[in-house]
Design a protein around this nucleic acid. Structure first.
Lengths: 105, 105
DNA sequence: CATATTTATGTCAAATGTGACATGATTAGA
DNA sequence: TCTAATCATGTCACATTTGACATAAATATG
């Protein structure tokens, strides 16, 4: 079962789609959001693979559980920088990150 | 002519290499720097391909010439977010960005 | 060579991102 | 069910990033 871009964005609480123009998102803004979401997904996946709690990951990257939750939720308040730094801390390399960014897993 | 990682970092003024440990950079920090540099290179390349001055690009992305210069120099004061947003504004897509990040052109 | 255009570098106030905390919601195990 | 662990969400002081400005250095153009 493969979700459309719209569905994926809606799932993440972005309400794009039927209300796409309502939010007035430029194509570039949409791409940024999608990149953030892709990285979020990878982060959550990698953390679970390593069987870490958000709390434990937070400690590893000297952050907090709440920020990890926001990262994984693709919250607009988290930068792509932080997502990338977290992925690297979990052992991902540039190729992994590039793969995540290139999208659609 | 292919530069080594060390040379590429030195060119960008990071003085890693012979003084690698002097700067006490963790592998993750080095990767982040390399990612920033890769994106910088892509940005400069793409801007030149489009025959735009830094001033003109700055206007397109509602920024300033000085910040564009810093972006292209891989200055530590610029976020990966900004680099990615600028690349998108120049017409790059996620694949292009992923390619740049995956490194060694 | 002038001098005009472009690019580099330093600084700073305003904007944005961050960790930490509190606390609510969800899930897991008895 | 209880209840303990994990995850989600809101808030805020503090930190980092940002556009803008000034100005120097480099590069083109005559």
């Amino acid at each position: 079962m493969k979700l459309t871009k719209r569905q994926r964005l809606e799932v993440a609480g972005w309400k794009v789609g039927t209300t796409a123009d309502f939010l007035q998102l430029s194509p570039e803004e949409v791409e940024i959001i999608e990149i953030r979401l892709s990285l979020s997904k990878s982060l959550k996946q990698l953390r679970k693979d390593k069987e870490l709690s958000q709390q434990e990951l937070a400690k590893d990257i000297s952050s907090s559980q709440s920020r990890v939750a926001k990262m994984e939720a693709g919250d607009p308040s988290v930068s792509i920088d932080l997502l990338i730094r977290s992925l690297l801390a979990l052992g991902a390399d540039r190729k992994d990150i590039a793969l995540a960014i290139s999208g659609d897993l």
